[in-house]
Simulated assay, not measured.
Amino acid sequence: MPEPIDIQLKKGVLGLCVLAVLARRENYAYEIASLLSGAIGMGEGTIYPLMRRMQTDGLVETYLVESSSGPSRKYYRLTPAGHQALKAQSDEWRGFARAVDALLEPIAEPAEPQPVNEA
């Protein structure tokens, strides 16, 4: 049975959302996952593999920050390639969203047929 469209859409745009979050502020994976969970309903289990893949692809890089309340945290930040990907994907998303919005515009009701006046 295929997944509902909303899950497919969320997964498809998740990378763009992560790039957008990191463009605003460098952050650690748990906080990114929490933000995206609240914003678009994606769980942590989906975020962590994506973060690893984005690092492998050179879109993000990591660094450690010591924590007084436990082990060091791994923070993520965008690389120059990540900034470029964000720009390209944002432009593509906006064009796609405009096209979908145009398709979703209410369809005008057909005009009532006018009686033909035959003399």
Score class of each variant (00 low, 15 high):
Pro2Lys: 12
Glu3Asp: 13
Glu3Ile: 04
Ile5Ala: 14
Leu9Val: 14
Lys10Tyr: 02
Val13Cys: 09
Val18Ala: 10
Leu22Lys: 06
Leu22Ala: 06
Arg25Met: 06
Glu26Met: 02
Glu26Ser: 15
Tyr28Val: 01
Tyr28Gly: 00
Glu31Ile: 09
Ala33Gly: 09
Leu35Thr: 15
Leu36Val: 07
Ala39Arg: 08
Ala39His: 03
Glu44Leu: 07
Glu44Ser: 12
Thr46Glu: 15
Ile47Asn: 06
Ile47Asp: 05
Pro49Glu: 08
Arg52Lys: 15
Gln55Asp: 03
Leu59Trp: 13
Leu59Asn: 04
Val60Lys: 03
Glu61Pro: 00
Thr62Ala: 02
Thr62Trp: 03
Thr62Phe: 00
Val65Thr: 07
Glu66Val: 01
Ser67Arg: 11
Ser68Ile: 11
Ser69Trp: 07
Gly70Asp: 04
Gly70Met: 05
Pro71Arg: 15
Tyr76Cys: 07
Leu78Met: 02
Pro80Phe: 00
Pro80Met: 00
Ala81Thr: 02
Ala81Asp: 13
Ala81Gln: 12
Gly82Lys: 04
Lys87Pro: 00
Lys87His: 12
Ser90Met: 07
Ser90Gln: 02
Asp91Lys: 12
Trp93Glu: 01
Trp93Arg: 08
Trp93Asp: 05
Arg94Val: 14
Gly95Phe: 01
Gly95Tyr: 02
Gly95Asn: 11
Phe96Val: 11
Val100Lys: 06
Asp101Thr: 08
Asp101Gly: 04
Leu103Phe: 10
Leu104His: 02
Glu105Arg: 14
Pro110Ser: 10
Pro110Glu: 13
Pro110Cys: 01
Pro110Val: 09
Glu112Pro: 08
Pro113Ile: 02
Pro113Gln: 03
Gln114Met: 12
Asn117Lys: 07
Ala119Ser: 12
Ala119Arg: 13
